[in-house]
Design a protein around this nucleic acid. Structure first.
Lengths: 340, 340
DNA sequence: CTCAATTGGGTTAACGATATCCTTATAAAT
DNA sequence: ATTTATAAGGATATCGTTAACCCAATTGAG
């Protein structure tokens, strides 16, 4: 392996001079020497050793991206999109992204510490896991979509509650009164918020969302089938994710129910694929690229200046009306419509 | 930071003994000492420093995953899926995955070398870029879907040609004679192979695929519209990727054409979303998880034993018949059907 | 003309681990 | 009783860089 020593010898200088050239230390090396060294570096194709650099300078220029979840979390397009954008911003800053997925919490933090990462962007955790996370490290951390009660955490999230609200108002405005909610969860604060917003808005309009009108997130076909069978008068379904909405539409099709003619369906997330289906999915959209950008920028500002105070940013959401919700000629409809 | 020295001092041994415990060097430390050291390590939460380890042992336990492409390559579900699976296998082996995306070839190889990665899995490159890649490194490399002429490369690909063939036979068997091909490309060997297989099979059946029946990969809506306008008698479209197929279906819908009633569409890749649309997409499927698994295993066998000879594995593909292709009551149809 | 500041370097010691070579005590073999 | 082998561990150099401090020559101000 080519080392700084080789470059130094060839240039007839000390390794420190080479180091200073590489790190652009201002006014410590003459223009001429700098130029000579740079050309030797280029000619020889010398690349500094990051491990040594990291060991010596206590800065790895690595950002860890931690996606907590089971199985292949990247098969969920939201996670993949986020990772892709985050990675772009990380690379743009000259850092590298180390990827950690899974649920082995212990191993994850071990790896973070062993690599001495300069920072980490984390999502997919539930409340309870946060406590374990903060214990050990002084590593700058940015979370996304965390609803941790600890407010000294930097977080970038979306207005999940408003998302639920928008969905409820939209369905109500289209004349729907008998509505079901797919995505009940005790673990996920995100889903909980969406439910809250949805139910509250519905009740404010005068409709109700009883317990037996809710199904857990990602129900199997069988349980969905029996749910539909025992809720014949439901005219609309609000799913807390596009993937689930799309699956539900397939299930409905298998039951001989057409969307939106026989029953309306809404999603959440605005995955690219939702626009490509027939019917195209009416959904709540969030700006994933912006979220990734803000998360990265916040992380770097923490890295550059450790005194940066924790921030909690909530991004807005919007409703995207496409084809999967039908307007009902409901007698009691107030004709209320959410405009964008 | 807690170091080996701290552990050694507390255990009353030398750092080498601690090192031996950590690296499980057989029969160099007594059971009792090992146990004592391990408990101190656990109690103190000591984590070895990977940079130092890497520097000293010349092995980083990092695998780079290189996805060559523009923009957010992970928004393409195939890439995300592959990465997700590869990452799982990499983590299972105790390695970490460093992610590189983009087209800045020079920077990519620089990073690979600077981190002294133990190996890399690479995809998304075209022929011409390979030459630049092999130049510099002795790093074990595994490619996927490369059609490089250099046979000393280890590669895991799929039988793209057969995929094209299966598509052609299926469409022909369903009675289609006037067929168009969406996915012409001079750069991508993968798409070239799919075209080859498709065209050859079509011609073998007695049909033809003239130049003006081909559209480049991922055409815009306008060019697609005029293409359809000038090819009114086309009854089926074969797209070389599911994403494009889904987009095309949306374009067709906008033109007032129903799929498959008015025109049939086939995709390629079998992305999860293709099964969730209406109509569900008839497509060519490949086993992405298997591909990722084989690529990882091959890489590790190269890492464990540098003398492992290069291998080129081609995985089989299958046709998945769903709903986007209609059977034509074509007079000349031979009623040929591909069975799975 | 002298003194202080600046410019352009160099020297040495870390950083935290592993490699390599030693050492000692005990057991087994001759 | 001597040799040999093995088990259990230690000492030191080294991996490639940067941090911290040092030094000589030049420049500019007073």
């Amino acid at each position: 392996m080519l080392t700084m020593k080789d470059i130094a010898r060839e240039a007839g200088v000390s390794v420190m001079t080479v180091s200073r050239v590489i790190n652009n230390v201002p006014s410590k090396v003459s223009e001429e020497t700098r130029w000579r060294i740079l050309s030797i570096i280029k000619e020889r194709g010398y690349v500094p050793n990051s491990s040594a650099r990291s060991l010596s300078s206590r800065s790895s220029r690595i950002i860890a991206v931690v996606i907590y979840g089971e199985g292949n979390v990247l098969s969920y397009p939201y996670n993949a999109d986020m990772l892709g954008y985050v990675n772009q911003y990380v690379q743009k800053r000259g850092y590298s992204a180390l990827l950690y997925t899974g649920c082995d919490f212990h191993n994850m933090t071990r790896q973070l510490r062993s690599w001495d990462v300069d920072g980490a962007i984390v999502w997919g955790l539930y409340d309870s896991e946060f406590d374990r996370m903060r214990l050990d490290n002084k590593i700058p951390l940015v979370f996304t979509d965390s609803y941790s009660p600890m407010r000294q955490l930097t977080n970038v999230g979306i207005d999940d509650r408003k998302g639920g609200e928008l969905a409820a108002k939209h369905l109500f405005g289209k004349g729907h009164r008998e509505i079901a909610f797919i995505g009940r969860s005790n673990d996920s604060p995100v889903l909980r918020e969406r439910l809250h917003g949805f139910r509250d808005a519905l009740e404010k309009e005068g409709a109700r969302l009883p317990e037996d009108r809710m199904l857990p997130d990602n129900p199997g076909e069988d349980s969905f089938r029996s749910f539909i069978a025992s809720n014949k008068n439901v005219t609309a379904l609000f799913c807390t994710s596009d993937i689930v909405a799309l699956k539900v539409i397939v299930y409905l099709k298998a039951l001989g129910l057409r969307v939106p003619d026989d029953i309306s369906v809404m999603g959440f997330d605005d995955l690219e694929m939702g626009a490509l289906t027939t019917p195209a999915l009416t959904t709540i959209t969030q700006d994933i690229e912006l979220k990734a950008k803000l998360a990265s920028e916040l992380l770097f500002s923490h890295i550059d200046n450790p005194d940066t105070p924790a921030q909690n940013i909530t991004l807005d959401v919007r409703l995207i009306e496409r084809e999967s919700v039908r307007a009902l000629a409901h007698p009691k409809s107030r004709g209320k419509v959410v405009t964008l």
